[in-house]
Design a protein around this nucleic acid. Structure first.
Lengths: 126, 126
DNA sequence: CTTATATTTGCAACTTAGTTGCATTAACTA
DNA sequence: TAGTTAATGCAACTAAGTTGCAAATATAAG
């Protein structure tokens, strides 16, 4: 169920993801765009963009879903496994462009992993 | 706001956390104990046990909170920073007793991090 | 350019995890 | 044993996310 048609909603939403490092929560997007686009549509478009490998998603420490642009994902291979950083001061959530070393696990099959880091971002850290 | 009194609810709940490796979701606990303890009480007791350093919590891939016994936490220092593993087949969520190497981040202050791994557990992996 | 078709959208109602206020009950202390 | 204070149950509420359906709109065919 990927994006098929180039609609206004898709355009408006993609426009919010100019900054490839910053992740946006559904709550934030509904706050920003809720008057232009219905929240149901926002959820649906985001979900399709994710299926298409345009965006990837993860849950913040508050349990709210965030979306961010993908760099290395494709429709078939959602391989964008980088850590995410959430600032406790300003709330900004970012993708970190670094490799994470997932330890080998005996007898277990690892399919996906996510590292979420909480702290103060470069602007908020003294 | 830690545990002050030894009530029946506390006892019943702690009893569910015999296995120190297995994390239990609030949903699961309410399903198991909802007839004995009110769900509000379940949430409150869990939260207090966490404050006391008896349990630690994290969000699963489904956004539902899980709790598990702490090994190295104390009231003052919630340092139980180990990865968690969630099985896609049986749903079981476990604490992994291994060290994680959190990369150094330039200009950022790391306060807390969590690694969540999805895959097949030792019983479900072929 | 117009029409047919299928996708997308908006809306309202719903689901579910988690929270809050308050009166009642139960644990601890003196 | 009584008094104090914390813990509990209940009902109502909040907020994120979902669903069904009718109306709107993008695209392809003619």
């Amino acid at each position: 169920m990927g994006i098929i048609r180039k609609t206004e909603s898709v355009e408006i939403l993609l426009n919010e993801f100019q900054d490839t490092e910053t992740a946006l929560s559904t709550v934030e997007l509904i706050k920003r765009l809720g008057k232009q686009i219905n929240k149901t549509t926002i959820y649906r478009v985001l979900s399709k963009l994710e299926d298409d490998g345009v965006l990837h998603s993860f849950l913040g420490f508050d349990g709210v879903k965030r979306f961010a642009r993908c760099k290395t994902c494709s429709k078939s291979n959602h391989s964008d496994v980088h850590p995410h950083f959430q600032c406790v001061s300003c709330g900004k959530t970012e993708c970190l462009d670094i490799e994470v070393n997932i330890p080998e696990l005996l007898n277990r099959e690892v399919m996906f992993s996510q590292l979420l880091i909480k702290g103060k971002c470069n602007l908020c850290a003294v």
